[in-house]
Every structure is written in structure tokens, then in C-alpha cells.
Amino acid sequence: MAIKDLEALVASISHALNAARIPCVLWGHCLLQVHGVPTIVGSIDFVIPDDLLQAGARVLTDVALAQDTLLTPCPNPTDCSKTAPNRPTPPPSFHNHLEGSDASVGLYLQRDTLWFLPPLNSMRDRLLSPATQQLPPPFILASDQTTLPPWRPGRASGFFKPGQSPVVVPKAHVLLEAFMRIYARDVGTVIGSFALTMIAYMELYVDEDGFLDVDQLPDHLKELYCERRNDKKPVRQWTQELKETLGQNP
């Protein structure tokens, strides 16, 4: 995505949502980049509370972004690549397009992404003022240089530069848990295949580089993840056990 300062743009969107009292957590391509996973950034995405989609959509319609970047409504919502049924990644619940770019800004609901965490609304004040209040345990700031990786050859951008509006991101083990749960929920679909690939990427680019604290995973998921990492079971058997563990079987 040809944007001069992606971090400033992400921070300006986060600031606009927070100013409207909408707690938001970075998601998608940009989040992978923060954790060091190399990926092409085709969208800037955030997770917001389930009941604030309309409010979030209004923000993305009226927001003034960094670098005088403009957002425009999707010209063809029923036939847009950002929401196509066969797209390889989960579609957002709402999106607008960055003017003059193929990229978009999207909103995802917590019930579709981080449903296993406490409701974002229950942590609202701490998420809206992360610079002055301690963040809830699942989250850190995108500028946290003590936890997130720096840029390295063969890896993505890593932590954000300091001095911008704060952007909240899930910790690495939370992101891994999300992918494991999405895979169990959507196995056999393109979204399930995407989630399984992301589990492998988390192992390759985050865990192997020492930026994933596996001990922070719930015990039942920690054991399953270690089995997958060490290739102890066929994928089919591992998938069945993951689904059973998470109660995803009929």
C-alpha cells in the first residue's frame, strides 16, 4: 500500500475512534506487521465492540485522517473484493476505501474475532486512555519496545515509533489463540485455511524469534499448540482434538 507513513495513518484512525468513545484494537495485516510477520498491507483494520458498528461506521465516514488522506464509501458493497465470499481472509463488518488506493479501512466485531476475551466495553476506559491508565492484560501498545520486535531483515516493521496517538494491539499469545479458535470454528473453509496458515506464521516469525510467550496460553491450548509446533500429530487428528477441546464439534 503506497502510504508515506502508515503508522501515522493507523494512529489517526485509532484516535478518531477513541475520540468517539469507541474502544478499538488493531487487527489484520497491520497487526501482523507489528508482531513481525511479513505481509502485504491491503487494509487497516480494527476490532470494536459488537454494539458500536454504526457509530464506528459514522466515524470512518466523517474522520479527518493523517496526511489529508480521504476515505470514500465502497462503490459496490455487493461485489467488492474486501467482502467477497471467496476472499482468503475474514471480511470486515464495515469498510471504506482509501481514496486513490486499493486499500481499505475496515471494522471487525469482537464476536467474530476476539470473542473469548472480556467485552471491550467492559474495559472501555482503560482502552480509551492507554497512555494514562494501565491496559488490560491481553493488550499492549503498538509502540511497546519491551515486548514487540523491531524491524529486522526478512521480517515486518515491528513496533510503532513513539510520539503518536496510542494504538492498542493484542499480545502475541492472544493473537495466536484467536487464530486457533478461528481455525476450529471455520475448519473446511477458506477462512479456516487462512487461520491455519497464520498459526504456522506465528510459529515461524514470532515464536521462533522469541517474541511469543507460550506459557501465557491457556493450558489446554498451550499443549495443542506445542504438539502442532513439534509436528507430533497428523493435522487431521490435531484439528479434531482442537475442535473437541474448544467445543466446536456438533
Rank of each mutant, 00 (worst) to 15 (best):
T61V: 04
E244F: 09
P75I: 09
L135H: 06
K243E: 09
D219C: 10
L31S: 05
H15A: 15
T61R: 10
P92C: 09
I199E: 07
V41P: 00
V167D: 03
C24E: 06
A131Q: 13
P138G: 05
H173E: 12
L148D: 04
E227Y: 10
D207G: 11
L212K: 04
S165P: 01
D186F: 10
P38I: 06
S43R: 08
I140Y: 01
L175Q: 06
I13T: 12
H173P: 00
V34P: 01
W27D: 05
D68V: 02
F159S: 04
F159M: 01
K82V: 12
T239Q: 11
M1P: 01
N18M: 11
T69Y: 01
S43Y: 06
A11W: 04
G158Q: 01
G36M: 05
S193T: 12
V235N: 10
P38G: 11
N18S: 15
G56Q: 04
R21K: 15
D79P: 00
A195Q: 03
T61F: 05
V25L: 07
L212P: 00
P138W: 04
N76F: 02
P119L: 02
H15C: 03
Y183W: 13
A8I: 06
G100D: 08
V214E: 10
F160C: 09
K4W: 11
R111N: 13
E223C: 05
R229I: 08
Y205Q: 08
E99C: 03
V167N: 00
H29Y: 14
K243N: 03
A66M: 04
F46M: 07
E177K: 02
R181S: 02
D112M: 05
V169E: 03
A8K: 07
V59H: 05
Q248E: 14
P118D: 13
D62M: 09
L71R: 09
P119K: 01
P75D: 09
G154K: 05
Q240C: 02
L52N: 01
V25A: 05
D68W: 03
L117A: 09
R58N: 11
L141G: 08
Y201M: 12
L70E: 14
W151V: 07
A184T: 02
W151M: 11
P234Y: 12
D62P: 00
R185V: 04
A142Y: 02
G163Y: 04
C226P: 00
V34Q: 04
L242K: 01
H15I: 02
L127T: 07
A11F: 06
G247N: 10
E203S: 12
D207Q: 14
W115V: 01
I182K: 08
E99T: 10
Q145R: 13
G100T: 07
V169I: 13
K232E: 14
D102P: 03
L135M: 11
V169M: 04
M1I: 06
D231M: 11
V167R: 00
R185N: 06
L6V: 10
M180D: 01
Q237N: 08
E203A: 10
E208Y: 08
